[in-house]
Design a protein around this nucleic acid. Structure first.
Lengths: 286, 286
DNA sequence: TACCTCCGTCTAGGTTTTGTCTAGACTGTA
DNA sequence: TACAGTCTAGACAAAACCTAGACGGAGGTA
């Protein structure tokens, strides 16, 4: 059908949280991928390549050696064309329902999606792409603010359900917050859901959180990780001093498109790259 | 007729925040736009061009390389604003209707498809893949002969409608025929539709045509191209001598999975490769 | 202790890609 | 006629990527 766009190694690395060096090494040593090349020789990766690396990561975190994981990832490749077709259709149903303010239909579609796919996959492959695309349509005038709010609220409600009780338990504790003035909390919510499923306890502060409050909270409760998320660099840039103080109080990670390598280095924080689901999986991997 | 106002490059640049240099570079390097020109050669951009650049910007911010972003922006447009989402759903609807002998539903789905996608895209991305898949199912016993015939006839009817009047006009003339004993004429019909849309006049002889008849026709009407199509090499192999005579009478092309490079070379014919739509587009390109 | 393999990481030196710029000529409009 | 706007062709430099190979820590073995 429509040829999907291809990614260069830098973007693949950002999305997966795997360094370019490692991607090339896996290719060289295990033949894990055989990306097509641009006329000039640059590697160009497809969606299938991305999936294979994800599988590789999963196998690695199961404790397989790199060589074994690569071999398994290559051999499995059973793929699931039927599942994909079903996924596309169901995702469409969901999108139509949300676009059309049809909450029952949307919930039903969500039920079916969560019934067939993993939570991670629903978040990463369906909900977050849909929200991203809705944002695009809003920017281009093709979708209204009301549509955006309606869809956000339905999805936020579901994620809240997935996160029920996530503050209790035994695992390490993470404090999640959006930067001041940042209102896009759904990716952070998704991040929290996945992190929680990996055994973490979550303290979720949500949108628009003052950094000083975080410093105070971190100073009294000593979480194992504090995550601050922002969609735009200018949300974080003026807060360098406060973030540095925060990083001195608890392990800090910056996330979202607004988090840059430079800022993270400057304030002494980790940088979380890629989509929220992958980022959460990578946090666990360390 | 109200002509929408066209923008010159400076205004476009200001509205989009993309420098004039970049706009020209994208046009030169990737063929992203083909703006009409003023009498003096100034580029004049339409609203659609503006949208395409916006899409390009969105893809770039997703991390795609400029080359890939341009390719995707161009591709997507050829196949709908609702992208893969709408396409997949509509194609599924069509398949269900055809599988279930529901002609009105199938026609309605076809109406929607032709209303959203280009003719070429409907043929290449929906109908031909569906027929191919139906053939597979038939071979494996999962579909009946009756289903195959029903679907073929619905689709053949639509294609005939698209080809109405294709023998008239001014362009070069092509004679299209299936090899003797070859009954699969729909791909050839699709080929003819696309070729006709590129300005060719079509003389369509359809399934199971004796080569000698073609030689006689070519000798009297002198077409610019004769296309002979076959799904299996053994349909063409015994006809080497006759095909050679035909190639001596008019420009000849062999098409379909049954056409091989060797045979084409032997008889002095062109070989058309790829799906019928692409093949027809390539014929035009010469 | 010495040596091995495995595997993530890094370096050096070169190439490709892409945004930007220049020079000199032409266009459109006041 | 003046002048801001636009044209083409080509050059340039920064960012991104390439290959080949080396490095070193972890873990195993003699």
């Amino acid at each position: 059908m429509i040829e999907p766009p291809l990614l260069r190694i830098g973007e693949l690395s950002r999305r997966l949280g795997v360094s370019e060096h490692v991607l090339r090494a896996w290719e060289r040593r295990y033949g894990l991928l055989q990306p097509v090349r641009s006329a000039g020789g640059f590697r160009l990766y497809s969606e299938a390549d991305l999936q294979r690396i994800r599988r590789m990561q999963a196998l690695l975190s199961d404790g397989l050696s790199a060589a074994e994981a690569a071999r398994a990832a290559i051999n499995e490749e059973a793929s699931a064309p039927a599942v994909l077709v079903g996924l596309a259709a169901e995702a469409t149903t969901l999108a139509r329902a949300l676009d059309g303010y049809d909450e029952p239909a949307a919930q039903a579609a969500l039920d079916r999606l969560f019934g067939t796919l993993t939570v991670e996959s629903v978040l990463r492959d369906v909900l977050l792409p849909y929200l991203h695309e809705l944002g695009e349509r809003w920017r281009s005038g093709a979708a209204s603010v009301a549509q955006e709010h309606f869809a956000s609220n339905v999805i936020r409600g579901r994620l809240a359900g997935l996160g029920r009780g996530w503050g209790h338990g035994q695992g390490p504790r993470a404090v999640l917050a959006c930067a001041p003035d940042e209102q896009h909390d759904i990716p952070l919510l998704a991040f929290g859901v996945v992190l929680n499923r990996h055994g973490w306890r979550i303290d979720y502060l949500g949108a628009n959180t003052p950094i000083d409050d975080l410093v105070r909270l971190a100073g009294t409760t000593h979480p194992d990780l504090v995550v601050v998320s922002a969609t735009q660099p200018q949300r974080l840039a003026p807060l360098t001093a406060q973030l540095t103080r925060l990083a001195g109080t608890a392990p800090l990670a910056l996330a979202g498109p607004g988090a840059t390598t430079e800022l993270a280095d400057t304030v002494g924080a980790r940088l979380l790259t890629g989509d929220p689901v992958t980022a959460a999986q990578n946090v666990k991997a360390r």
